[in-house]
């Protein structure tokens, strides 16, 4: 049993499709109206069929009221940290504190290179992400005097002006699967944001991967509780008979999500599929039941 005790967050993991831009916006607006906590969009700038995720996120933030927005996850190799920091803080100010920052070290390097980005090895990607997170937090930190100066291997900042400070403490969530990235997550991140379908053993991966994060957090003088565990679940549907994770009747969804929270400490669930009826049903029937069940078990 692992429960880090965070409050529960429920949201959507949406495709920033250019052809179905209206649908993407409708799904985000519906998520907001249905009372979900988070709307997140994939970020693949090299994918011609997709919109620019930051632009879409900003537009959607302007057309929603309560829901938080995040990239899931933003592609660091194509979004320099200083640009990200100022854009995220700006949107956080404009939206009244509704921005969270999902970050990834980069995948699909051919696509990244085709867009003019720098091709890195996985190990270099981890180091670049570490430098980036430091710079982003420095730029947000307007309480410290003087400009930001970081002479990293991948990113250099020379006396950059700080600010703007975001409206709220923007959490940085990292997409991580491998050993070094999990260690970085424990060491620095506010959250871990993997996708279920990419975990080597599905739900069975959690004990080992959580342990790596916990270990790294403790080594860095932090608490495992400092790292929220989030989860994307791409393939979901309501069906009459249970076939798998989030593929079954409502009761089974509730049972599975409650289990994920109490046994593996996962406290944010972002569902894919881009299907409005599924999103509405998730919000109306699953979310309150999971909240209730988890609250009951936690006592």
């Amino acid at each position: 049993m692992t429960d880090y005790g965070h409050d529960l967050l429920f949201g959507t993991f949406l495709t920033p499709s250019a052809q179905d831009a209206r649908q993407a916006i409708d799904l985000a607006v519906a998520s907001d109206r249905a009372g979900l906590d988070l709307v997140t969009f994939q970020d693949h700038p090299y994918q011609p069929a997709f919109l620019d995720t930051w632009t879409l996120l900003t537009y959607v933030a302007a057309r929603t009221e309560r829901v938080h927005l995040s990239g899931n996850v933003l592609s660091l190799p194509l979004r320099p940290p200083a640009v990200l920091a100022r854009a995220a803080a700006s949107l956080d100010l404009l939206s009244g504190g509704r921005v969270d920052l999902g970050l990834g070290a980069g995948a699909f390097w051919d696509g990244i290179a085709a867009m003019g980005g720098r091709r890195l090895t996985p190990a270099q990607g981890v180091d670049a992400l570490r430098e980036a997170i430091t710079i982003i937090r420095d730029l947000w930190d307007t309480g410290t005097r003087g400009g930001v100066r970081r002479d990293g291997t991948y990113y250099q900042v020379v006396g950059a002006k700080r600010g703007p400070a975001p409206a709220h403490d923007i959490p940085i969530w990292v997409g991580a699967y491998k050993r070094r990235m999990l260690a970085l997550t424990g060491e620095m991140a506010d959250g871990w944001l993997p996708t279920l379908e990419y975990l080597p053993d599905g739900v069975g991966s959690f004990p080992a991967l959580n342990a790596r994060i916990d270990e790294a957090a403790v080594s860095a003088g932090r608490s495992p509780r400092d790292v929220r565990r989030l989860l994307n679940i791409m393939n979901v549907r309501f069906s009459a008979t249970g076939r798998g994770v989030l593929d079954g009747p409502v009761d089974q969804w509730v049972e599975q999500l409650t289990g994920l929270a109490l046994e593996h400490g996962v406290t944010a669930y972002l569902i894919g599929g881009d299907d409005l009826p599924t999103v509405e049903r998730f919000a109306a029937e699953v979310v309150p039941a999971v909240r209730e069940a988890v609250a009951r078990e936690r006592g």
Partner: peptide, 16 residues
């Protein structure tokens, strides 16, 4: 002294 990212601010205003 504003510091806001111009692109984010412009898209935001378009959205509202």
């Amino acid at each position: 002294d504003t510091g806001l990212d111009p692109w984010t601010a412009a898209v935001w205003v378009a959205g509202v």
